[in-house]
Design a protein around this nucleic acid. Structure first.
Length: 218
DNA sequence: GGCCAGGTGTAAA
DNA sequence: TTTACACATGGC
């Protein structure tokens, strides 16, 4: 929590999801939520810039829509998301996801399922990080998302090894932070910002706002 | 021209 | 249970 406050005062709010370019928090529409799910899949091992272009293409073709997504030809979908990389795999993943959710009727109903996380993980193409991103950013439930940046930062702190198990590191946060989806959202985004600015680009940590707490650990 | 990006599934050892 | 590898484009 201490580190979170330091980062927050250094970087300010990060405005990650929900919805690019919008700073005002607002109630998410069903389409917003779907866009977030799609983004979570498209961004797998891919930079967000590439994903944004793919999302624009999907918007233009009315494909931020479960039924249209479920019914479009996989090959056509693949072409539209080509710029996000792994495009054949991801086209398949998006269709499978849409078809799965449609069995429940809507995202809203799907998100009300008791064992949502396990349900997501049972879908081909959805692993722990994508499942947790969907739960946190789209369903707005408190799950801490672990990604490559989080692992890099926390291993720098000496909290874990760089190849730490996903759920082990996730447990570390759940034991220490109050369960609040807005906090988890902001905290994760701040870690990513820190990793981008410092842990990689400035290896000597000279401009890092939490240098002292970090170096103590190293 | 090489390395990496908000991972996941599969198969062999 | 662990490790290796395929999947693929775009930015720096």
């Amino acid at each position: 929590m201490h580190i979170f406050s330091k980062l927050f005062s250094a970087f300010g709010p990060q405005h990650w999801w929900p919805i690019k370019g919008e700073y005002k928090p607002r109630k998410l529409s069903e389409q917003d939520r779907l866009e977030i799910c799609i983004g979570a899949i498209l961004t797998q091992n891919t930079s967000w810039k590439n994903v944004e272009k793919a999302l624009d293409n999907l918007h233009e073709n009315k494909l931020i829509d479960l039924k249209n997504l479920a019914n479009i030809k996989e090959q056509k979908l693949a072409e539209l998301i080509r710029c996000s990389g792994y495009y054949r795999q991801k086209a398949k993943k998006l269709k499978i996801f849409a078809q799965h959710v449609l069995k429940f009727g809507s995202l809203k109903i799907f998100f009300e399922q008791k064992n949502l996380r396990d349900n997501l993980l049972s879908i081909w193409g959805i692993g722990p990080e994508t499942a947790d991103s969907i739960i946190l950013y789209s369903a707005e439930k408190p799950v801490f998302v672990i990604d490559a940046y989080t692992k890099r930062i926390m291993s720098r702190f000496g909290v874990c090894k760089s190849d730490v198990d996903y759920h082990e590191l996730q447990g570390y946060f759940h034991e220490r932070l109050p369960e609040n989806h807005k906090l988890f959202n902001e905290c994760h985004a701040l870690f990513v910002e820190l990793a981008k600015r410092n842990c990689k680009k400035v290896p000597d940590c000279s401009s890092c706002p939490i240098k002292k707490s970090c170096q103590k650990q190293i």
